[in-house]
Design a protein around this nucleic acid. Sequence first.
DNA 1: GATGAATGAGATTTCATTCAT
DNA 2: TATGAATGAAATCTCATTCAT
Lengths: 208, 208, 208, 208
Amino acid sequence: MTKQEMRTDATKKAILKFAEEEFSDKGLYGCRVDEIARKANVNKALIYRHFGNKETLYKEVLVRVYTRLGDLEEKVINLQTDYELKLKDLVHIYFQFLYDNPSFVRMVMWENLHGAKSFKERGVAETKNPILHELGRIIQEARLRSEVPESIDSDQLILTLIACSFNYFSNMNTLNIIVGKDLMLSENREKRIQATTEMLLAYLKARQ
Amino acid sequence: MTKQEMRTDATKKAILKFAEEEFSDKGLYGCRVDEIARKANVNKALIYRHFGNKETLYKEVLVRVYTRLGDLEEKVINLQTDYELKLKDLVHIYFQFLYDNPSFVRMVMWENLHGAKSFKERGVAETKNPILHELGRIIQEARLRSEVPESIDSDQLILTLIACSFNYFSNMNTLNIIVGKDLMLSENREKRIQATTEMLLAYLKARQ
Amino acid sequence: MTKQEMRTDATKKAILKFAEEEFSDKGLYGCRVDEIARKANVNKALIYRHFGNKETLYKEVLVRVYTRLGDLEEKVINLQTDYELKLKDLVHIYFQFLYDNPSFVRMVMWENLHGAKSFKERGVAETKNPILHELGRIIQEARLRSEVPESIDSDQLILTLIACSFNYFSNMNTLNIIVGKDLMLSENREKRIQATTEMLLAYLKARQ
Amino acid sequence: MTKQEMRTDATKKAILKFAEEEFSDKGLYGCRVDEIARKANVNKALIYRHFGNKETLYKEVLVRVYTRLGDLEEKVINLQTDYELKLKDLVHIYFQFLYDNPSFVRMVMWENLHGAKSFKERGVAETKNPILHELGRIIQEARLRSEVPESIDSDQLILTLIACSFNYFSNMNTLNIIVGKDLMLSENREKRIQATTEMLLAYLKARQ
DNA sequence: GATGAATGAGATTTCATTCAT
DNA sequence: TATGAATGAAATCTCATTCAT
């Protein structure tokens, strides 16, 4: 990689970084290309040179943000063997990821509001998702060891895990008001992780 | 009320109706005042005369949409006595409400993306919410009858109910892709209502 | 027509007038909407409100300019009876029209350079053209009176009339240099009218 | 000439070739430097290095295109002796040239629309023009041999020849619609060459 | 109350040209 | 010589809002 190419790469990365800030914050339509350029300290025309147009840049950001899910893989593969503990760790990891990546949460929300248009166009759903992958494995293993009945509907577990984790962050602003607490606080998050895990396990056991 | 006043009232209602369509669909920034005027078949200036500006109209819509939750009251007060059946019915009613009121779901999403700014300003949180009110009563009654332990954390039940219900609709677009099913279908919704209820009950019982 | 409508009409006409100046001068791509707005002393957005976009405005101008040809009708219907004199007068009228309407000449040139795209789209060719209509009648009458042979190819006469008249103005800038004269001068135009008429007549007679 | 110089020369030629395509097609303002670079497969900055700026390149193209007229010389010097036949051949050669060199026709049109600015600046009018040169000789010879009267106005013949030939191609798009034929077809071109020649001869003879 | 015209500020995008290597 | 990155200025078009009637 030549110096030139490195510089270009750095520029592109800067653009993407601030584009992520802006898009996740204000969405495709609320965000201003001018603002991204200003923050990234580059000429507006450069953004167009590198990314073609606003929408393409948005999609690039979406893909980029979603890809970070994949980085959870290494954390996930070293989980404990016991499936109860495994599940608890998994919930913990997912909560931590969503807490650490607010732009992920917001981009997924924007996408849902826009009919998941870019999500579909860029095949974002195909991105590696270690959380769901591992949940599937946990259930499968438990089935094999007859710890849970064959009849268990894994989709319900997936939906519950996502709902309890994702919604906690996506609806944080209104939930804070409803329960009258700051759900961002570590102790409240921990409680929620605990409850979510218990909920999933209780459901599994009740079905035995 | 004079004829004139009735006409004015009808005009306002038409504006609000189509403003709801547009705002819930495209959000405060994606929506166009021109489009609302066109759909409502009124002059744009009239919208300004009646509502001052775009943002005020948006808040009016938000309040209006949220108020519909209150209409669930009559459905909720006639629930069965048994708390398990009561809970199941409550989940059912909430799912049905969210299914019937997509603009409610979307407005709440927009609000969360915008820091619940209008939500707070207009005290929307104070709006009567029969679902949460009833859930509180169910837990309280169960506590009194010692059907659940005193220690139960009602917030976790509230958060789970909202998460499992709301997220099902708010993230419908991406969830459909993830589970590879059309979650809007009646049969899939029923399954989810069932699972959500079971989840809540299993959690309650496990705590006994 | 209300006052309001009259004002609107005046605004539209002002826009069209200066749009004609600019488009005929610099073409669709060389012309600037800003400049039209400035000249017409109206807000730029107003142009878009009334005409949609730059290209539509351009087409409107094209139609408008072309329509002026139709106004020649009254001049043409009062021509002398003798076909030689009639032809001479016709050439004279056409030259005068092109001299008086430089924007007509230029718009036709722009159109030809752009593949007559707008010309076709707006059906400009169907616009009443008294010059060609009358030339057709002259030839037909002459044929009936056996003043010219049946075999005469009227297309060649049309093409010659247009070529000798139109090209004189369209290529004025380069022709001036080639012949080393100012062809705009009245005396030179008169000579050319004379020669063009003679050329047409000589061709007709030679064919007898 | 070193290898390096040859390469440079080839690059320049490639640029000029595609610049001609673009400029003749879209004019000075419609054409994009980016597009020329892309087509010529060279870096944009190279164009600036070699030609300074867009306008200079345009003028270079204009000169280049006009110079091709000079190549007609060898065809013209071998014409028949009889002046009628000579004239017919001349018209034929000119038509063929214009047919073979559409970019010549278009560049002349662009120039006329822009006040022949570059035409004058680069002294394009001084470029060898065998057609007009030969037409002048034909008339002069005919005068000497008293085949035409002294009084003949050679400018009118020049203007007619140019008009009937050039306008046929420059206004092709609109003329096609007017006469309802495809004037590009060989048979229609032949008819027009014939008619143009006859017109010129008839005019000459009528003056005898 | 109601309307259609009009506006100002700003949004996205384009493009000739220059810079750095 | 040749290149890809970068820029500044400007172009088209949009949109919330106000004006005049």
